[in-house]
């Protein structure tokens, strides 16, 4: 019962998964009770921090915790990564977005790249629980950058690996493996593609001619994450949709990936600027004096 006294947002556990990836478990019992595969949360570490959207990787209703896996790519994710067990994240809002549509489809390929595996894991798990044959295809740049291998293996009927440098699994990309499995007459009823937009775009191109229904989980820039700002707007077929309230999962064959990739570059200059400024002020910075 000790955890009942904890404040929402308290960091319960923190783990370095590899050189660039961290896992953080946060006390948020109401979110944990409601979370479903495919949904995300928005975190705001301190009063002056950005709101950052992170897809839920796992959660425990029993312990009242949620777990996110992230890479420290910019100032705000570094700020999150600097938190220690016992620190409190000021704001945690969620679960946000629509859950993945889980049903018994038959044979389903879960194709994930890099950090996308963190998002793919609960989807694969839910698909398995729904009685599907789950074929997971995991990719990373090299063998050290794979995450959740054991977890993915546990919820998959078959698992394939690919790495850019060939240090684990097949040398090449996840798309190569998917292509060869399709050629081997794996009759996929459904494909979930979760990873960098360029990867999801390639997967969509592979499955399109076969008419295999393919779902992509999109990761555009968001501010509020609840339908207000429209920063996360994406073009799906002829319509503009908001990833936060209409998604984040969409029919990959309808997604305008070129536009998504373009829009993700909106704040490159500012992102560099804030990191630089904070580095310069680093010695006198008051905010991380813990």
């Amino acid at each position: 019962m000790k955890q009942k006294e904890l404040a929402q947002g308290t960091v319960i556990e923190k783990q370095q998964l590899n050189s660039v990836t961290k896992k953080i478990t946060i006390y948020a019992p109401d979110i944990a009770a409601k979370a479903r595969a495919g949904q995300f949360i928005i975190l705001k570490v301190q009063p002056d921090s950005e709101r950052i959207p992170l897809t839920l990787s796992s959660w425990s209703k029993k312990h009242g915790t949620i777990t996110n896996i992230f890479q420290e790519v910019g100032y705000s994710t570094k700020e999150l990564g600097n938190l220690e067990v016992g620190d409190k994240i000021m704001n945690v809002a969620g679960p946000l977005g629509n859950p993945s549509e889980i049903a018994k489809y038959g044979t389903v390929a879960v194709v994930c790249g890099g950090l996308g595996t963190a998002v793919a894991y609960p989807v694969a798990k839910a698909l398995k629980e729904a009685g599907n044959k789950v074929v997971s295809i995991m990719g990373a740049r090299n063998k050290d950058l794979f995450i959740l291998e054991e977890e993915m293996t546990a919820v998959s009927d078959e698992v394939y690996f690919s790495s850019d440098d060939g240090s684990k699994g097949q040398k090449g990309f996840v798309s190569d493996i998917l292509k060869s499995l399709i050629a081997k007459n794996y009759n996929f009823n459904m494909v979930f593609a979760i990873g960098p937009p360029i990867m999801m775009s390639v997967i969509a191109d592979i499955t399109r001619p076969y008419g295999i229904k393919t779902i992509a989980s999109l990761n555009p820039i968001m501010v509020d994450g609840m339908g207000m700002c429209g920063a996360c707007r994406v073009t799906i077929g002829n319509d503009v949709k908001f990833a936060c309230v209409d998604g984040p999962e969409f029919d990959a064959h309808q997604v305008n990936f070129k536009e998504l990739i373009q829009r993700l570059k909106s704040y490159f200059a500012e992102e560099k600027h804030v990191t630089l400024v904070v580095q310069q002020q680093g010695r006198t910075c008051q905010c991380h004096g813990r």
């Binding site: 950005e50 509020d224 207000m228 600027h273 400024v277």
Partner: peptide
Amino acid sequence: YSANEFLIRVNLMKSYSFPLHKTP
């Protein structure tokens, strides 16, 4: 931008004091 995004960044997230506030 939608006006909402622009104003949310400026007012709610206080982008006018970027990089003190971290939302660009």
